[in-house]
Amino acid sequence: MAFGRSSSSRRQPPVEPVTLKILVAGGFGVGKTTLVGSVSEIRPLRTEEILSEAGRPVDDLHGVEAKSTTTVAMDFGRITLREDLVLYLFGTPGQDRFWFLWDELAQGALGAVVLADTRRLEDSFAAIDYFERRGIPFTVAVNCFEGARRYPPEAVRGALDLDPEVELVLCDARDRESVKNVLVAVVEHALVLAGPDRAPVPG
């Protein structure tokens, strides 16, 4: 079978970029897909994992009745920072039954954004617990929907019971600059956590 690439003998070996990922967690409708779309160079893509009824990805569907499986979608975007450095963003629902997906996504993740909506702060509790327990650097980004009451950041921190070193930022998931700031905050936090000897020099 031909791949139809007649001119390809002169082709350079492709650059093999380092790939990194940042996770975007939060309840349904909090703005995960919007946030990813604001900074991604590609339209947010959706991919699916097949779930068994037990909530784990199915590795062997042989003999499994169709009615006992379904799929869960995650969406993701790509940011090419340099030819040899590519950042992927993954957003998937932060609900208990989807944690198996997070277990895979969290492997090797640089950090995470927990998107929160002040009208439904409790929707972000599970994600915060998850990242705290696994020691994954995360930043809480409050998506400022119009019509939602504005609370002082300290009040939101208190309601979320955030550790002092966890950053809380206000954002607009539709705004590229705003989302860039959120991502920079995540990576800066990861940098600090990378080790005491690597912390910024106190000024």
Partner: peptide, 15 residues
């Protein structure tokens, strides 16, 4: 975790 120099490059790249 990715090493510190990569994290710095990510920050610069994002900015």
């Amino acid at each position: 975790l990715p090493d510190v120099s990569i994290l710095r490059e990510v920050i610069n790249g994002l900015r």
